[in-house]
Design a protein around this nucleic acid. Structure first.
Length: 926
RNA sequence: GCCCCCGUAGCCCAAUCAGGCAGAGGCAGGCCCCUUAAAAGGGUCAGAGUGUCGGUUCGAGUCCGAUCGGGGGCACCA
C-alpha cells in the first residue's frame, strides 16, 4: 500500500505516505502537549490571566451525532473547511475559538441498546472515542478543553436549567419580549390561588397542552411538526403519523414568529435557508371576517363581494351545529353526497375525511364536500350564501374556515365548478386573460364602494370598513405552530418537572438539577403496528417506577410526586451548545456573561448597528435549515429577553457546505457491486467483465461505495487528503469523490518537499541568496491572492496558487531561496498543517507556526514595470504591445496604433474609435 | 403549479461579484527523461469558444430576455 522508507526504490526522505504519517503523528502530539489551539477566555478557568486580544473569531461546525458507522470522506469536508479558516485567522493573529462536541442523545444509540442490551451511554461513548480518533488524525486544530457532549449530566443540567427559564417566563406582547413569570403572577395577585395558577400556567413559554399532536406508532413517540414530512410521515423511519390528543409539553415558539421572520434580515445567511425559514413560519397579512357565527381568515378581504359560499374544515367545531335536519326543498343533488339529511351527509363526510391520511388529502386534488344545509350572511352586502364542509380547507390554518371567492381563487373555482356555485369576478382581469380564477392585480369590479380601487387600496378600505362594522379586523396569520417538546424515548434529557397527586405540574428548583436518567431494563418505548392510530404511548421512563415516584420538599413539606416520564427532543441540546463551548466547565452558570459577551456579543463597530451577535462562522449542511436553526434562534431570543445573553441571534454568519457524493454501480440484477473495483471503458462500466450501470448520489454502506478518511490517511497522509478535499471545488458546491484524483495533491506536496529537503539525505536545502525579481513578483502576487482566497473560503483557488508558485520554483531548477521557502510554507499551513509545521521547524524555527506569522504582500512587487496590452481590432486580438506600467491612456493608444500589424489592419484609415482599458487591453473600432 | 441554484476541455474545477486576451490548479491522455523494469518519480505537449436562441455593448462565459437540461425548496396554508 504505502512505499517503504529507505528501500532501494524510493529515496529515503521522499514525502511518502509513511513519511507523512510520521510527521503527522509527531505534530498532533506536539499540538496536544503544548495546548497549541487553546483559545483564552477573558475570565474563568480558561482565562490565561493576561487579558485577551480584542480581535477574536468563533468558528463552529454543526456538531456531529457520533454514529457507530464511523466517518466517510464526505463527513469531514465541513470540519476541514472550518479548520482551514480557523488556522488562517489564528495565524493572522486573532484569538480563534474552534472546537467540536457531540450531539449524543438520539435514537440510533437507543435502538442499538434495544438490540444488544448495552446501555446507550456505553455505545455512545465508544462511538465518541472512535470519532475523536478519526478526527484527530485529520489534524483539526480544536481546543480540546472545550469539548462538550449533550449526554453529559454537567451539560444537560444546563439544558434543563434553560427549560426552566423558558417555563418560568411568558411573552409580553405589548413589550414584544419574554418576561419572568413572577411578574405575570403579580398581576393576578388578587385572584384565588388555583385560578391564578391556571391563568399563569396557560401563558408560560413552555406549557402542557392536551392538543392534537403527531403520534407515530411505528416509533412509539410523538413528533414535532418539523419532524413530519409533507407526506405526513416521520422524517426518521418514514412511518405514518397520526393526529391525536395527548398531554404534552409545548414551546411557545409562535410568540416569536414575527421576530424570527424579521430578524432574518439581520443575518448573514444563505438566501436559500432564509427563504426556507420564511416559508416555514409562513406569515401572511389578511383579515378575519365574520359571517354570522362563522369567522374566516382571508388574505384577500378585497374580494369579499365575490364570496359566494363558505367552506369549513371537516374538523371545524361548528360543523355539527350547522348541519341541519333537512335539506332545503330545492337542494342541488350535487350538494347532498347522496345522504337523506344534511346531518347524515356531514357525518359521513367527516368520517371519510378522518380516515384519509394527510397524503391522500393532499394527493387527491379533486374537490369534494357536502352542503351543511345552513346559510350565512355576507356582512358586506347581506347576501345569504351556502355553507359547505370540504377537506380542501384545513383545520390547522387560520380559523379552519374560508370564504370562497371562485373568481379570484383557483381552488374555489374548481370547487364551484363541481358544485355548480356562482362565480363573481371582483378584480377585472388583464386584457386577453383566458384563465379561470384571476389572481393578479387589477381594479375592483362588482364590489360596491371598492369599485375602481387597486388590490392594495381595496384591502385597506374593506378592512377599515369591517372594523367599523364590527364584522372583522385586519390580522396576521402564521403557518408556524408551537413546538411539541416531549418525546416518549429513553435516551434524552429528562424534564425537571414533577406532578403532584392532582396531576399539577411543578418545576423543580435549580438546586435539584440535573435530573439524571434512571437505569431501566428496557430502553425502548413500546412501538406498535405503524398503522395503529389508536395505540397509546408508553415511554420507557414510566417503567422506572423507583425513579418516577419521588418524595420531595418543594416548599410545603415532603410530599410524594411523580416525575415526568418523557424526555426532551434531540434538538434541545443543540439549541445552545455554542454558549457552552464558550465556558465549558463553568459550574455556577451556563455561561459567564463576560465570556459570552466577548465571544458571542454584538460588535456594532465591526458589523454595523444592526449586528445581532452570534458565532462568526457556522458551517453545516442545509438539512438543518428549518429544524435546528429555527429552534436555536428561538432559545437564544428567550435567553436574550431574560437578560442571560447579550446577542439575540446565535449564528451571525451561516454557511452551507456542499456534499461529497459518489458513484454507485449496479449489476444486471440490480445489486450494488463494489465501486472501487469497477472499470471504465469507452464510457461504459464493467465489474468482473460484466457491464454495470452507474448512478450518482450518496455514499453509503449499502451502496458499496464508501471511502473512509482513515483509508485516505493511510494511503496518502492527512495533509494530502485535506488538500484534495479542499481542492475539489468551492466549499458550497457538492462534488463527486474520485479516489484516483487524490494523487495529484500528493504529487504537489512531494514536489514542494523536494524543493526544500534533499530526498536522499534529508538535509534542508534552501539558499540564503535573495530570490530573483520574477520569483519575488510571483511570490507576492501569490501572497495577496491567497489572503483573499482564505478569507473568502475559496480554498480550491488558494491551493492552485500555491501549486503555481511551487511549479515556478521547480522549473527554475535553482536551490529555493529561504525568503521564498518560508512564506510558501506558512501559506500552506492552513491547508496542510502537519507538513508545514515540519518544514517550518526544519527551516530552523523553534515555535509552532500555528499563531503565525502569515506573510504579507509587499505592494512594490505587485505592480509590474511594464504591461503587455493585447490590441483588438473590432473585438479580435490582432497584436500585442509592451508599454511602461505608468504609461497614460494616450501613450498606450499611440503605442497601439504604431504597432505594425495594427497599421496593416487599418490599411491607412483613421480608426472610428479607440478604447483603452487601463491595465487590460486596447480595442480599436475600425 | 410556484420559487431558488447550477450548466466552461473526456472528468473535477478557474475566470462570472465589478463585461476586457476563455485557463490558475488537479485527474485522465500523448511524447520525452530517470529506470533492468515499473510508478504514487521528473519534464513537456495537446485539448473547449462557455447547453441553445435572441438582445444590450466597441467588446459578453460574465449583463438582460427566452428556451432546454440537471439539482433543490415549497405546495389545497385561504
Amino acid at each position: 500500500m504505502s512505499s517503504e522508507v529507505g528501500t532501494e526504490e524510493v529515496p529515503a526522505h521522499r514525502y511518502t505516505a509513511a513519511l507523512a504519517d510520521a510527521v503527522e503523528k509527531r505534530w498532533q502530539e506536539y499540538w496536544e502537549d503544548n495546548g497549541t489551539f487553546y483559545a483564552p477566555n477573558p475570565v474563568g478557568k480558561l482565562s490565561a490571566g493576561d487579558g485577551v486580544p480584542a480581535d477574536k473569531l468563533f468558528v463552529q461546525d454543526m456538531f456531529p451525532y457520533p454514529s457507530g458507522a464511523g466517518l466517510h470522506v464526505g463527513h469531514p469536508l465541513g470540519f476541514i473547511g472550518t479548520d482551514v479558516f480557523a488556522r488562517y485567522h489564528r495565524m493572522a493573529g486573532r484569538n480563534v475559538l474552534h472546537t467540536m462536541g457531540f450531539d449524543a442523545f438520539g435514537l440510533p444509540a437507543e435502538q442499538y441498546a434495544v438490540q444488544t442490551g448495552q446501555h446507550p451511554r456505553k455505545t455512545t461513548e465508544d462511538n465518541i472515542a472512535t470519532y475523536l480518533r478519526q478526527i484527530r488524525r485529520l489534524g483539526l486544530g480544536h481546543d480540546e478543553r472545550r469539548r462538550i457532549s449533550t449526554i453529559d449530566p454537567d451539560y444537560y443540567r444546563w439544558t434543563q436549567w434553560i427549560f426552566l427559564q423558558i417555563y418560568n417566563s411568558w411573552y409580553d406582547t405589548e413589550q414584544g419580549r419574554a418576561r419572568p413569570i413572577a411578574e405575570l403572577a403579580a398581576k393576578y395577585a388578587d385572584l384565588p390561588a388555583d385560578e391564578r395558577r391556571r391563568l399563569v400556567d396557560s401563558q408560560r413559554l413552555a406549557y402542557l397542552s392536551e392538543a392534537p399532536v403527531n403520534w407515530c406508532p411505528g416509533l412509539g413517540t410523538v413528533l414535532s411538526n418539523e419532524e413530519v414530512t409533507s407526506e405526513g410521515r416521520s422524517e426518521r423511519g418514514n412511518f405514518p403519523v397520526f393526529r391525536r390528543n395527548l398531554r404534552q409539553w409545548m414551546m411557545r415558539i409562535t410568540a416569536y414568529a414575527d421576530r424570527l421572520v424579521d430578524d432574518l434580515d439581520r443575518l448573514d445567511w444563505p438566501e436559500k435557508v432564509k427563504s426556507m425559514q420564511r416559508n416555514w413560519i409562513g406569515r401572511s397579512y389578511g383579515a378575519r371576517v365574520r359571517f354570522d357565527a362563522i369567522e374566516v381568515f382571508t388574505t384577500r378581504p378585497d374580494t369579499l363581494f365575490g364570496a359566494t359560499y363558505l367552506v369549513l374544515a371537516p374538523e371545524h367545531p361548528l360543523v355539527d351545529e350547522l348541519a341541519t335536519a333537512e335539506w332545503p326543498s330545492d337542494v342541488d343533488s350535487r350538494w347532498t353526497g347522496g345522504a337523506a339529511t344534511p346531518a347524515q351527509a356531514v357525518a359521513a363526510y367527516r368520517k371519510a375525511a378522518s380516515r384519509k391520511s394527510e397524503l391522500d388529502r393532499q394527493e387527491n386534488k379533486e374537490k369534494t364536500g357536502v352542503f351543511t344545509g345552513s346559510y350565512a350572511t355576507n356582512p358586506v352586502n347581506g347576501t345569504k350564501i351556502p355553507v359547505f364542509v370540504a377537506d380542501y380547507v384545513l383545520m390547522g390554518y387560520g380559523t379552519g374556515a374560508i370564504m370562497a371567492v371562485p373568481g379570484q381563487d383557483q381552488r374555489d373555482w374548481d370547487f364551484a365548478e363541481v358544485f355548480g356555485l356562482p362565480i363573481i369576478r371582483t378584480v377585472r382581469p388583464t386584457e386577453g386573460f383566458e384563465g379561470k380564477a384571476f389572481t393578479g392585480e387589477g381594479p375592483a369590479v362588482n364590489s360596491g364602494f371598492l369599485d375602481g380601487m387597486d388590490v392594495v387600496e381595496a384591502k385597506k378600505a374593506i378592512t377599515e370598513w369591517l372594523t367599523e362594522q364590527g364584522a372583522g379586523e385586519g390580522t396576521v396569520q402564521f403557518k408556524l405552530r408551537d413546538w411539541l417538546f416531549s418525546r416518549q424515548r429513553y435516551w434524552g434529557e429528562p424534564f425537571p418537572v414533577v406532578y403532584d397527586e392532582d396531576g399539577v405540574a411543578h418545576a423543580l428548583p435549580e438546586s435539584m438539577l440535573p435530573v439524571e436518567l434512571p437505569e431501566v431494563d428496557d430502553y425502548s418505548p413500546r412501538t406498535f403496528d405503524p398503522e395503529d392510530a389508536d395505540s397509546e404511548p408508553s415511554p420507557p421512563l414510566s417503567r422506572a417506577t423507583d425513579w418516577v415516584e419521588v418524595e420531595l420538599d418543594l416548599g410545603d413539606g415532603p410530599k410524594t410526586y411523580r416525575r415526568d416520564v418523557n424526555t426532551m427532543p434531540n434538538w434541545a441540546g443543540s439549541c445552545w451548545y455554542q454558549l457552552r463551548y464558550v465556558d465549558p466547565d463553568n459550574a455556577d452558570r451556563f455561561v459567564d456573561p463576560v465570556n459570552e459577551r466577548y465571544w458571542l456579543g454584538p460588535r456594532t463597530e465591526q458589523h454595523g448597528a444592526n449586528d445581532p451577535g452570534g458565532v462568526d462562522l457556522y458551517i453545516g449542511g442545509v438539512e438543518h435549515a428549518v429544524l435546528h436553526l429555527l429552534y436555536s434562534r428561538f432559545w437564544q431570543k428567550v435567553l436574550f429577553d431574560l437578560g442571560h445573553v447579550t446577542g439575540d441571534e446565535p449564528y451571525r454568519k451561516l454557511f452551507n457546505q456542499g456534499y461529497v457524493q459518489a458513484y454507485a454501480y449496479k449489476d444486471a440484477r440490480g445489486v450494488y457491486v463494489p465501486a472501487e473495483r469497477v472499470e471504465e471503458r469507452d464510457g461504459k462500466f464493467f465489474f468482473e467483465g460484466e457491464e454495470v450501470s452507474r448512478e450518482y448520489g450518496k455514499m453509503g454502506k449499502s451502496l458499496k461505495n464508501v471511502v473512509t478518511p482513515d483509508e485516505m490517511c493511510e494511503r496518502y497522509g492527512a495533509d494530502t487528503f485535506r488538500l484534495y478535499e479542499m481542492s475539489m471545488g468551492p466549499m458550497d458546491v457538492s462534488r463527486p469523490w474520485a479516489t484516483k484524483d487524490v494523487v495529484g495533491a500528493q504529487r504537489f506536496l512531494q514536489r514542494l518537499w523536494r524543493n526544500l529537503v534533499d530526498e536522499e539525505t534529508g538535509e534542508l536545502r534552501v539558499s540564503e541568496d535573495p530570490a530573483d525579481e520574477d520569483t519575488l513578483r510571483l511570490l507576492h502576487k501569490t501572497i495577496a491572492g491567497v489572503h483573499e482566497d482564505y478569507s473568502e473560503m475559496r480554498y480550491n483557488t488558494a491551493g492552485a496558487k500555491l501549486i503555481e508558485l511551487n511549479n515556478h520554483l521547480t522549473k527554475s531548477g535553482a536551490v529555493t531561496p529561504r525568503s521564498v521557502a518560508e512564506p510558501l510554507v506558512l501559506m500552506l499551513a492552513p491547508l496542510c498543517p502537519h507538513v508545514a509545521e515540519e518544514l517550518w521547524s526544519r527551516l530552523g524555527h523553534g515555535e509552532s507556526l500555528a499563531h503565525g506569522p502569515f506573510p504579507v504582500a509587499e505592494q512594490r512587487y505587485l505592480v509590474a514595470a511594464t504591461v503587455e496590452y493585447p490590441i483588438q481590432v473590432n473585438g479580435k486580438v490582432r497584436a500585442r504591445v509592451v508599454v511602461p506600467a505608468d504609461a497614460d491612456q494616450e501613450q498606450v493608444k499611440a503605442a497601439a496604433l504604431a504597432e505594425e500589424k495594427i497599421a496593416e489592419q487599418l490599411g491607412g484609415k483613421e480608426p472610428r474609435k479607440v478604447i483603452v482599458v487601463p491595465g487590460r487591453l486596447v480595442n480599436i473600432v475600425a
